[in-house]
Design a protein around this nucleic acid. Structure first.
Lengths: 361, 361
DNA sequence: TCGTTTCTGTAAACCGATTTAATTGCTGCA
DNA sequence: TGCAGCAATTAAATCGGTTTACAGAAACGA
C-alpha cells in the first residue's frame, strides 16, 4: 500500500468550505479576500474550516471572474543565454514584489515560433508582455498592438512602432568599444555579430565603425555575421583571421560571440592582447575567471529590467483606467559601460602572428 | 490621436461568435475542438466568423471547466545558474512537444520561499511539478504528496519519500573525479561544496574521499563548505590554500564552485595543473574557452530532463486513470561523465607553490 | 411503411470563484 | 412605539468556455 486514502477525489471548493462552516460562499469569499465584511466570529469559524479542509482557492476561477490573471509573459530567444537568464531573474524579482508571476517562454530566434508562443500566452490571459523579439519588425511575426495586452519591447526591436521600448544605446556601445581600440592604435577591426538583420547588432557594428572613422586615416572595419551559436562565431572568426592577417582587434557583439571569439583566438594559438585584442559584450563571471581577463561592454541589466517593469505597470494602470488617450509610446535608452581589462591592449606589429599560421597563403 | 478605436472594450467571447454565426455556443466549441461534430458547411461559417472577430478562446475558462491547465511547474534554485537554465530549456522543449507549457519559478535556495512559490503554482492549477528542492528533506518546506499534483524530485532530494526521483549518481561522480586525481598521485584534496546539508554535495565529497581511501596510504580529503556564490567559493578556497600548502588538487562540486575555484587559483597566481589540479562539475562552454581547459564531471542534462518528463507523464496518466494502487515511486540515477582536460595533471612537489605565498607562515 | 440509426445541432448545466443587490436583525433615537 | 441607519449575511448572477442530454431531420433496413 502506498497511502492511506488513494487519491481523494476532488479538491475542496469554496462551496465545501461554506457548507462545512455553515455560511454562504459569499462570506467565505469575503474572508478569503480580507474585505472586512465578516464579523470576527464568522471569520474565525471560516478560517478554521479552511484550515481543516486544507482548502486553497482555484486561481483560474478567480481569474476568470476577475479578469485578472496576475500573470506577465516574458519572451526571450533562449533562456540558456546568461544575459537573458539574468534579465528573467531580475524581472521575476520585480514581479514578485508586485504580486505578479512571470511566465517565461522562448522563441529560439524563430519568429513563427515566437508568434505561437505569444498566442499561447494570450490564451492564458497574461496582463502584460515583455518581449525580446526575434526579428526587428514586429512582435510574434506581425501581432498587432490591438491584439496584445500592454507590452514592452526590449532592445532588439527598438523600431517597432506603437510599443514602449527599453534597450541599450547600441550604437554608442559599439562606439565605446571601437574608440577604445582605436586609441590603442588599432585600425583593422573585425566585429562579430549574430545577425545583420538585427538592428542591435548592426548598430553596435556601426558604432564601432564610426569610432574608427573618427580616429582618422585609413581603417578597415570588417563586419562578420556569425549566427547565434558559439561555434558559429568561432568558425567565422577563425576563417576571417586566416583570410586577413591585418586584423588586430575583435569586437564580439554578444556574450555568445565573445565566447566564440575566445575559442577561435585560443585555437589559433594567438595571445591576447599581444597578437590580437578583444572586447566582448555583456559581462559575466567567466570573463574574469580566465586569463587574460576579458574587456567587455556591460549592459545595465537591473536598470533595463526595472524600467521595463515600470513602463509596463504604468501602461497597465493606464489601460485599467480606460484612458481615452493613451500616452505616446516611450523609448528608454541606457548607456553601456566599457570595462577595460586585459584582453585589449596596444596594437603590435603582426609579423609574429603571421608566422604562427602554418598554412600556404 | 494614437489609434483608430481607443481600446475596444471586451475581447470577443464564444457567445459573440455564436451569435454572429447564427449557431449555438456548443457548436462553436465543437468546431474549436475539432470534434467532428459539425457539418462542413457550419464549420466553415464558424471558422469565418472566428477569423472575422479575431476571436481567441480564454484558456482559463476552458481550464476551469476541463480541470486541465496544461501547465507544468518547474522550481529551481535560480535560473541564472547555467545548469538550471539548460535543464529548464530541455524541459520546455519536451513540454512543448506534448502540448504543455512550463512555468519556471525560483526558490533562491530558500525553503520558505520555495513553499510560497509552490503554493502559487498550485493556485494556478498546475497538473504536474518538477522540483529541485532547496532542502533535502521535503518539497516546499513540508508540503505533502497529497497536496501536490504528480511531482518529480530532482537530484538534491533523492531521499524525499513518496516521490519519483531522478538525479545524478553523486557518490559515483565524486568518486570518478577523486579516483582520477588519486591515479595522478594526489593525496591531499580539497572538495568545494555549496552546502553540507545537501545530500548531492555531501555525496560528491564522500565519493571523492572513498576514491582516496581506496588508493591506499595516507590521504587527506578536506571538505570546504563554501555557499552558493562564486565569491564564496573563491574566498573559501583561497583561505584553505593559504592554510594548507599540501593541497595539490581541488574538486569543485558545482559549476558555481568551479568558477570560484578558478578565480581563487588565478588570484593566487597558481598554474594549473602544475601547481594545483582542478576538476569541476557540470560542463559549459566557458570551460573550454579558457586555458587550461578545465576538466569536469558533466551531467547528462538531456537524459535527466527526458526521464523526469517521462516519469511525470506516466504519473499524470496514472492519476487521470484514477488508479487504485499507484505504482511505487521510482528512482532513476544517471552516471556522470568525467571529461579529463588540461586542468588536472600529475601531482608535482609543491615547493615552488609555497614560494609563491608571500605570507609569514 | 414504420421503426431504427446516424447526423447536426442546441438548451442548459457546469467548472469555482467574485460581486451585486437584497435581506435580516440590531441598535439608537425621537 | 416606530423607523432610520447600519452591520452582517446571503441568493443569485456572472466570468467564458465545455459537455451532457435531448430533439429534429435525414438515411436506412426490412
Amino acid at each position: 500500500m502506498t497511502r492511506d486514502r488513494p487519491y481523494s477525489g476532488r479538491a475542496p471548493t469554496i462551496r465545501d468550505v461554506a457548507a462545512q462552516a455553515g455560511v454562504s460562499t459569499a462570506t467565505v469569499s469575503n474572508v478569503l479576500n480580507a474585505s472586512g465584511r465578516a464579523s470576527a466570529k464568522t471569520e474565525e469559524k471560516v478560517l478554521a474550516t479552511i484550515a481543516a479542509l486544507n482548502f486553497r482557492p482555484n486561481g483560474n476561477a478567480a481569474s476568470l471572474r476577475n479578469r485578472r490573471s496576475r500573470l506577465i509573459g516574458l519572451i526571450v530567444p533562449t533562456i540558456t543565454n546568461a544575459f537573458f537568464a539574468h534579465m528573467a531573474s531580475a524581472l521575476e524579482n520585480l514581479a514578485g514584489a508586485s504580486g505578479y508571476d512571470i511566465v517565461i517562454v522562448t522563441s529560439d530566434e524563430d519568429p513563427s515560433r515566437e508568434r505561437e508562443r505569444v498566442l499561447a500566452l494570450l490564451a492564458r490571459q497574461i496582463e502584460g508582455l515583455i518581449v525580446y523579439p526575434s526579428a526587428d519588425t514586429s512582435i510574434g511575426a506581425g501581432l498587432d498592438a490591438r491584439m496584445l495586452p500592454p507590452s514592452v519591447v526590449m532592445d532588439r526591436g527598438l523600431g517597432i512602432a506603437g510599443f514602449d521600448t527599453v534597450g541599450l544605446d547600441n550604437e554608442a556601445a559599439g562606439h565605446m568599444a571601437g574608440r577604445s581600440l582605436a586609441e590603442l592604435g588599432h585600425r583593422d577591426i573585425a566585429v562579430l555579430i549574430p545577425d545583420i538583420a538585427l538592428a542591435a547588432s548592426r548598430d553596435r557594428a556601426l558604432g564601432a565603425e564610426r569610432a574608427l572613422r573618427e580616429a582618422g586615416g585609413r581603417y578597415e572595419c570588417r563586419v562578420i555575421v556569425a549566427g547565434q551559436t558559439i561555434d558559429g562565431a568561432r568558425n567565422a572568426l577563425e576563417q576571417e583571421l586566416h583570410r586577413d592577417h591585418r586584423v588586430s582587434a575583435v569586437i564580439a557583439a554578444t556574450n555568445v560571440a565573445t565566447l566564440g571569439a575566445i575559442k577561435a583566438i585560443q585555437g589559433l594559438q594567438l595571445a591576447m592582447p599581444r597578437d590580437i585584442s578583444l572586447i566582448g559584450f555583456d559581462d559575466f563571471a567567466w570573463m574574469t575567471a580566465m586569463r587574460p581577463f576579458v574587456s567587455a561592454v556591460a549592459q545595465p541589466i537591473d536598470s533595463l529590467a526595472s524600467s521595463a517593469w515600470d513602463l509596463l505597470m504604468t501602461r497597465m494602470a493606464e489601460r485599467a483606467a480606460n484612458a481615452a488617450t493613451p500616452a505616446a509610446p516611450q523609448r528608454l535608452i541606457f548607456a553601456g559601460e566599457l570595462r577595460l581589462r586585459e584582453s585589449s591592449g596596444r596594437v603590435m606589429d603582426t609579423k609574429g602572428r603571421q608566422a604562427s599560421f602554418p598554412h600556404k597563403a
